[in-house]
């Protein structure tokens, strides 16, 4: 049954001012509760991962039941509340660099603007982070699949960099590296300069 709202327009009964108020209240409470729950679990999860502590089964189960179901995952995705907001926390990840050796020179991915270069550095850091923490997982099947996947990603990137730099060599060496700066404590003790630590290298042969 239509009712007249304050604006003098006829709306279906469900959208009357009273129901609209209830709807907004309910959504507001739901929305804020979602954010609090997701952020709380995100903190707990990252804390356990950082300090290598086993997660409490009950907490994990509650999180899975409440938040890890299709409607909630969709809601989180659309509202930007699917994950926590702890950027650069609890620790700042090491920066990763993907570099190749071609014709005796170091070659890198090339970009036309800063934004894409930054996004690529995020990709590098993400893969580097995976390479460092891959042994943390206890799921061997997962490790194996991820290993294969990242190898594929790695080769793809290598081929692209090879083509971008118009490399004429038949063989290209591509490596993932971490830029290791001395820590504040090491610096105070006199250690200077940074090192490029190679954590993975592959060889691409042109066929």
């Amino acid at each position: 049954m239509p009712v007249e709202n304050q604006a003098g327009r006829f709306l279906p009964a469900i959208l009357s001012q009273k129901n609209r108020k209830k709807l907004i209240n309910a959504w507001g409470i739901f929305h804020i509760t979602c954010i609090i729950l997701v952020c709380s679990y995100s903190i707990y999860h990252k804390y356990c991962r950082f300090y290598k502590i086993k997660e409490n089964g009950l907490v994990k189960n509650i999180n899975t039941t409440l938040l890890f179901n299709v409607p909630m995952l969709y809601y989180g995705k659309f509202s930007g509340t699917e994950s926590g907001y702890g950027f650069f926390a609890p620790n700042i990840k090491s920066g990763g660099i993907i570099a190749g050796d071609c014709d005796g020179k170091k070659i890198y991915a090339r970009f036309n603007n800063f934004e894409t270069a930054m996004r690529f550095s995020i990709l590098s850091s993400r893969i580097t982070d995976y390479l460092i923490t891959r042994t943390d997982s206890t799921d061997s099947l997962n490790i194996n699949l991820k290993e294969k996947y990242y190898n594929l990603v790695f080769k793809n990137i290598a081929v692209k960099i090879y083509n971008q730099n118009r490399c004429r060599q038949d063989t290209l060496y591509m490596s993932y590296n971490i830029i290791a700066y001395p820590s504040l404590r090491q610096y105070r003790q006199g250690q200077r300069g940074y090192q490029l630590q190679k954590i993975k290298e592959i060889r691409i042969v042109k066929q």
């Binding site: 609890p90 700042i92 090491s94």
Partner: peptide, 30 residues
């Protein structure tokens, strides 16, 4: 408010933010 609170809280949990190492790393790596 929740974004800032949880962002700060997560940093508090990492000892590197409490001893200055994270700021040092940020200055160099980023």
């Amino acid at each position: 408010c929740l974004i800032y609170f949880f962002s700060g809280f997560e940093k508090l949990l990492g000892y590197n933010w409490r001893n200055g190492e994270s700021m040092w790393k940020m200055v160099h790596a980023y």
